[in-house]
């Protein structure tokens, strides 16, 4: 895990691990798994908050908890850039990691698949596979999305692909 920075690492180690191996089609087992997902998310969120590192909001978009929506943000040059966030729990979950999408940024960066799915680092997949089923949504966010944002947003902002809302507004006004 040496490829991740120290804050990520410390956060990751603090997220409680999951134990139930169940996908969305497993009925009660999935419910159990979902509960564990929630606990992990709560822990992760509280860690982030206590470290003054709160950077996302998500919630389950359906009662089964197979689709999640929310937003995530990144502060760059004292400006907050916020993006919409959505992903589905794949049927083979937890063997397969969920594919996180940032639809607003679709087509704006190379590090992205069609439909706004972010390209994760080469390290993510082996790590996930190794830790299945102990890793859950919280881990995917922590390991996948947070570093991606930290790496991509400054480039996008600097290259002008992404503009702050205030700037957009001002340009729109002007």
């Amino acid at each position: 895990m040496e490829e991740w920075d120290s804050t990520t690492k410390s956060a990751l180690t603090q997220i409680p691990l999951l134990s139930t191996r169940a996908g969305p089609r497993d009925g009660a087992a999935w419910m159990q798994r979902l509960k564990e997902e929630y606990r992990a998310l709560i822990a992760y969120t509280s860690i982030n908050k206590s470290n003054d590192n709160d950077w996302f909001r998500i919630s389950a978009a359906n009662p089964e908890g197979t689709r999640w929506t929310g937003s995530c943000w990144y502060v760059h040059n004292l400006r907050r850039y916020e993006f919409l966030l959505q992903f589905d729990i794949p049927v083979t979950y937890p063997a397969t990691a969920p594919e996180i999408e940032l639809p607003e940024l679709d087509g704006k960066t190379q590090k992205m698949y069609r439909g706004g799915k972010i390209c994760l680092t080469v390290h993510f997949k082996p790590l996930w596979a190794k830790n299945s089923p102990r890793f859950g949504i919280a881990h995917a966010l922590c390991l996948g999305l947070a570093p991606w944002l930290a790496a991509e947003v400054p480039i996008l902002v600097d290259s002008g692909m992404v503009k702050h809302k205030d700037d957009e507004a001002s340009t729109a006004e002007s």
Binding site: Y38, L41, I42, T45, N53, S59
Partner: peptide, 11 residues
């Protein structure tokens, strides 16, 4: 709870 946690003020 998760909702609350996300809404809680971060230090």
């Amino acid at each position: 709870q998760f909702e609350a946690a996300q809404l809680a003020k971060s230090s």
